[in-house]
Design a protein around this nucleic acid. Sequence first.
DNA 1: CGTTATTGGTTCAATAAATGAACCTCGTTA
DNA 2: TAACGAGGTTCATTTATTGAACCAATAACG
Lengths: 259, 259
Amino acid sequence: MGTALNALKLLDYFSNARPEIGLSLLARLSGLNKATALRHLRALEEFGLIEQNPMTKSYAIGPAALRLAALREIARPGIESARQKMQAAMQIVGESLHLSLLEKNGLQTTLVVETTQHSVRVSLDPSEMLPLNATASGLCMLSFGPAHLRVQLDQDVQVQFTESTLTDPKLIKEQVAQIGISGWANSSGSYEDGVFGYAAPIFGIDQIALGTIAIAVPESRATSDRLPEILSALHALSTDMTADFGGQLPDTFPTEFHP
Amino acid sequence: MGTALNALKLLDYFSNARPEIGLSLLARLSGLNKATALRHLRALEEFGLIEQNPMTKSYAIGPAALRLAALREIARPGIESARQKMQAAMQIVGESLHLSLLEKNGLQTTLVVETTQHSVRVSLDPSEMLPLNATASGLCMLSFGPAHLRVQLDQDVQVQFTESTLTDPKLIKEQVAQIGISGWANSSGSYEDGVFGYAAPIFGIDQIALGTIAIAVPESRATSDRLPEILSALHALSTDMTADFGGQLPDTFPTEFHP
DNA sequence: CGTTATTGGTTCAATAAATGAACCTCGTTA
DNA sequence: TAACGAGGTTCATTTATTGAACCAATAACG
């Protein structure tokens, strides 16, 4: 049921690591028949969501994506000013930032601003779904997001990404409780080795987190003396962006973050 | 033929003026049966390209648009730096800018940067297709774009938008020839009364324009003393953005724009 | 107030559209 | 040159899409 949806799902196979995909590979990845995949691609191409490289014959996301994003910005403003705030914060902190929003299927990285100040940087994939148990953003979301996320915690099996990934629901809940008090979350290589993350919530009108803002730092620069700077930037972004999205901070939310 | 495409076409009814649409209206606009429209909307919603406002029950473009735009930026970089350049130019010139790219169906406004310096400003709709005969961008595209556009000029009927819209193919061709020499195009209320436009081409690797960059000025500020400033900004954007998009200026392209 | 339109959404038989195995052609590789 | 995998096509079979009528709920109206 849902031909249109099946066609759209092809778009999910494009990612940072694989921005262009050929017909055969895409058919294999999606499990669809080549003919079906091709017909879907043609439909998407006609709309502009897919573009075929005339030389390589490979397919990539098309220009219509940009138009729709602009339209989205009109319907639900916030991203544009978020981008600017993140860019400004990036200049000060000198690290990559990413904004993630809670969507139907999970926590989606929506906006990435990479640092221009270091060649060793954390590079995030905007097509990625963030695991709640293994990332600072995810833990933050568990702590400040809708209750059903915490309920599901006991049901779902938590994936182990690295040695330091938390998978025991009990340990995760302890972390989450701690984050509820401090207001910010951090992760030390629990998703990817060598990547430290610091995240803070962005609240909706109902004082429940609708997304997170996070700073990702490579291990080599994740020294404790940089923490105050990072936390101060994070707190400012958290409060400012909550306001931008028309949300409201809970009364119990700390007025500043402490290490 | 093409269910997926029909579903996607629903997205085309969203615009600056109508960012949220209810089921019945959308069915009427698209000519689809309500049941069909609903099924399509549900499919799009599941993918995240559509989002339903739980209060008003109206539909709007969803968050997946942003994710796809980010993916597009990876596959075909350029927009992000284009945005920054346009923002910088906006600060200097103090007027709204828009980038339009030639897509399958015509010239699409892809990126809009509105001026923050004046309350009277030109506000563009990113979902709009620009008519080639009535806008500075369109004329510019006719002049520097692929040859088939000029061929079609004789076949298609040119729409008259205002009193000063050019509709005679002969007159249009004269204009286009002139633009080919000067390098930039302008329009004086030929699309919308009271809006002056100035546009310059952005070239692809084949030295054929793949898009245009334009500055839109309300009539009240479109005085001749501001022209040098506008043209200088336009020329810089034209050459810089051609480079950003991996393109090449034709050898005959002027090194600066003259009134 | 009762009436009338209009909204979002559902149902189900009729039908039109999607599907997939096999096939074709062409460029690479062994 | 033979084998392979690439992109793409064909067409009988099957499956999902379609749309008129219908329902419940809300808004508009005399």
